[in-house]
Amino acid sequence: MDWLGPEEWQAVALSLKVAVWATLVSLPLGVVTAVALARWEFPGKQLLNGLVHLPLILPPVVTGYLLLLTFGTRGPLGALLEPLGIVFAFRWTGAALAAGIMAFPLMVRAIRLSVEAVDPKLEQAASTLGASRLWVFGTVTLPLILPGVIAGAILAFAKAMGEFGATITFVSNIPGQTQTLPSAIYAFLQVPGGEASALRLVAVSVVIAMGALLASEWLSRRVAKRVAGT
């Protein structure tokens, strides 16, 4: 990374930090949501499905503005969290929140497809032996859907790395604080002579994205083979 300047490296490091936290924090909720949409029947299920996929349909700027209205220091949730020392607006934590929300539909979709591919009879068989729902999920369902969980997590990570519209609207583009890799590319393209720096960051983005996709395929296949006992 010696060919990256300090500001460029700072943007890459912040993007990695944001993407990792966005993925780790949203993964448990993503698994629960995917299982609920695939297996459970409850009032408002279609509403939940719509809300989960809403970030894919809305313009990212709209999502970022809604986050600013909600989690800004004057927003209903932001005002409650600020006395506790939890601030999202114009902080890297806000970038992680925006990235996690934008990546959440991709994560849920991948995990949901894995859950739907599991034969419900396997879970029913474990239940007839007296196992609780939680035990059935942990010992039967989770190992079978693990390839999908891994794929969903890595896809969410890649999406979080590339998130721009919602992030810049919610936390702005502050170098060293909220300037992620896409924001840095945009900033470099706005100044004369910044094309070289932007091009280097584009190359880094492509490498990270391709690496994430290849890792997702490799890990999913390896886990699938281990689950199948081959």
Rank of each mutant, 00 (worst) to 15 (best):
A117S: 14
E8I: 07
L14V: 04
P60D: 10
N49G: 15
S220D: 03
E116V: 11
L14P: 09
E7T: 13
G30P: 01
T23S: 13
F188P: 03
E41P: 02
V115H: 01
S132L: 08
Y65S: 10
L84G: 05
S183V: 11
W9Q: 15
G94K: 08
W218R: 14
I145S: 03
L144P: 00
S132R: 13
F71E: 02
G211W: 03
T167E: 05
Y65H: 10
S127I: 10
V35W: 09
R221N: 12
A151Q: 12
A166F: 01
L77Q: 07
S220Q: 12
W9A: 15
I145G: 04
G94S: 11
S183N: 14
L106K: 00
S216K: 00
L142P: 02
F71M: 04
P43M: 00
Q190T: 14
K225C: 01
K17N: 06
E217R: 15
L29Q: 08
A22E: 05
L47M: 10
L84P: 06
V149N: 02
G138M: 13
G75I: 07
L51V: 11
E123Y: 04
Q179N: 08
G85Q: 08
G44Y: 07
V171Q: 03
W135L: 15
A19D: 06
Y65A: 12
L213H: 10
P147W: 00
G229A: 09
G148L: 01
L142Y: 08
W40E: 15
L146K: 03
A125N: 00
I101Y: 04
L24S: 09
G85F: 10
I57K: 00
A96T: 04
A110Q: 13
L189E: 12
L27N: 04
I174Y: 07
D2F: 14
I101T: 05
L77N: 03
W135K: 15
L106A: 05
P143L: 05
A203L: 15
S15T: 14
V207Y: 04
E7H: 12
G78R: 07
F104K: 01
I208R: 06
P60K: 08
F71L: 07
E163T: 01
T139Q: 13
L122H: 02
T230R: 14
A13M: 13
V31T: 01
N49M: 11
Q124H: 12
S197T: 05
L69P: 05
Y186L: 09
A110R: 04
L144G: 07
E82T: 14
S127Q: 14
I86W: 11
L201A: 12
S197N: 11
L113G: 14
I154Y: 04
V25T: 08
I111E: 02
R112Q: 15
A79K: 10
A151G: 14
L189M: 14
M102V: 13
L155Q: 12
P192C: 03
T23P: 06
T33R: 00
F88H: 06
V62E: 09
G64W: 00
V202N: 12
V227H: 05
F90M: 08
G72T: 01
F137M: 15
A96Y: 04
G78S: 02
L155F: 13
L37T: 08
A89W: 01
T63C: 11
G138L: 15
F170V: 06
L142K: 02
V118H: 01
A160E: 04
G194K: 05
V136Y: 00
L106Q: 03
T70G: 00
L29T: 09
I150T: 12
V206L: 15
